[in-house]
Amino acid sequence: MVPVLATTVLALLAATAAFGLSVDEEPHEAAACAALKTRRGWHTLTDAEKKAYLDAELCLMKTPSTSGIRGARTKFDDFQAAHVLQMEIAHFVGQFLPFHRLFVWAHEQALQNSCGYTGAQPYWDETLDAGAFSKSPILDSILGFGGDGTGPNNCIETGPFANYTNPLGPGYAINDHCIDRQISDAQSAAASPSVVARCMNTTRYLDFWPCVEGGPHGAGHGGIGAQMLNPISSPGDPLFFLHHTWLDRIWAQWQDGDPAARLKDMGGNNRQNLSAMPTGPFPTGGFPGGFPWGTVLPTATGSASQTRTGMPPVGTGAPGGFNMPGMNMTRPADVPEPEVVGDPGNVTTLTHLVYLYGLVQNRTVGELMDTRGFLCYEYD
């Protein structure tokens, strides 16, 4: 069991009380894995398998919310709403990959348990479409996720999700709107095989994680754009889950390269903090404002001599930051600041607790390191 400072737990419980939720201070015992599921790329699925997944997602969009989280109306919204509350401690931090591993797994469980989906969560191998997202078959209007946004609000008008009314976003806003997209082939280029290979060639998590978050991660969000580009409310586009499953696959493959070391390799800061980010050369990413990891930015005196190796904190207004017009990045009064549980300092460890407001049981980062454990899946 994982010890947790009493003050941290009390603060966390107070922060979630407004939503009628509770966050356990300790994880539950992990169940044994009976039979591994194999997650496969979308491009390898049969037409029947694609339709089964799309139908299950549509089912979540019709199933009433059970989370009680701010703004959620459906089970699909539950995941977006949980992401909204956790954004500040789930990005540009050490738990970025473990958090999203549990987040995507929770979505997979909901598809299976609430909507009868019998397959595994598929991923979108974006290396196949890097630099040309607009031509990807995953955007098919019949057996895909619909195409680019159109009109003044960039609403998707094709595909199975064209008529979904999303009540969350952009950012922290609660506002009915369509699923919107602004596809950018240029932004998607950071999903290229060469960028992924550069990440895979690292040997430490402190180098691997920011490489993935800055390159392939930015490519998927920036390449799809609009809702997907908003770091708070991005799960409002169902492509989010296939994108992050692909990132999880990259991590799992990297771990398999040296499992003895990498299934225990964790680190990084617990809160977004530019000065605490790892240093080193990172591949070009696709973040808003043209601010990839490692971009040389002008200093206050105007000289282009400062190389930033991370994103500026949210809301700072720094060049390329996420506090852009229309993104609603300022946390409102009814959204409490998320608390870090299980890690009293600012270094992410294996005892760090990942929590999703009751969508699934809380888990430590240590429990999430091996997909073949209680998570019970592997990749093709």
Rank of each mutant, 00 (worst) to 15 (best):
N154L: 12
Q187I: 00
T118E: 15
N201R: 15
D129S: 14
N153G: 01
D180L: 04
C155N: 14
L143N: 06
P216V: 06
P167M: 06
Y123C: 04
G131S: 10
Y205V: 09
Q112H: 14
Q187Y: 08
V212W: 02
K135L: 09
D180G: 14
S233Y: 01
I138W: 01
G236W: 04
G116E: 09
G214H: 07
S234R: 12
A132P: 07
A130V: 08
V195G: 02
P231F: 06
I174T: 15
R204M: 11
V212K: 05
G146W: 03
L128T: 09
N153F: 09
S188L: 01
I224W: 00
G151D: 04
I138E: 04
P193H: 11
A190V: 02
E126H: 14
N230Q: 06
A191N: 14
I183G: 01
D180M: 12
F145M: 06
A173D: 15
G169T: 01
L206H: 07
T203I: 09
I138R: 05
I174Y: 11
T202D: 11
Q121L: 15
P216D: 12
G222Y: 04
A226T: 00
V195L: 12
Y117F: 15
I142L: 13
C155Y: 02
C115W: 10
F161L: 05
R181G: 05
F133Y: 15
D129V: 09
A130F: 05
F208I: 05
P235L: 03
A132G: 10
F208A: 05
A162L: 07
Y123Q: 04
D207I: 10
T202K: 13
T150N: 05
G171L: 06
I138P: 01
S136M: 07
Q182L: 12
H177I: 11
C211R: 07
A120M: 10
G214I: 03
S194K: 13
S194E: 15
T165P: 02
H177W: 12
P122F: 10
N154K: 13
S188Y: 03
Y164L: 09
S188V: 00
I174Q: 14
L206Q: 14
P160C: 06
D180W: 08
P216L: 08
S192V: 00
I224M: 08
Y117E: 07
E157S: 15
E126P: 01
A219V: 06
P152M: 03
P235D: 04
A162H: 12
A162R: 14
Q187S: 07
W209G: 06
T127H: 08
W124M: 11
C178L: 13
Q187R: 10
G149N: 03
S194P: 03
D176Y: 08
S188M: 02
D125V: 02
G147L: 03
D237L: 09
S136W: 01
P216F: 11
T165I: 13
D148I: 01
I224C: 04
P216C: 08
H217I: 06
R204E: 14
R181K: 13
L229N: 04
I183W: 04
V196D: 03
D176I: 12
P160R: 02
S134V: 06
A226M: 05
P152I: 10
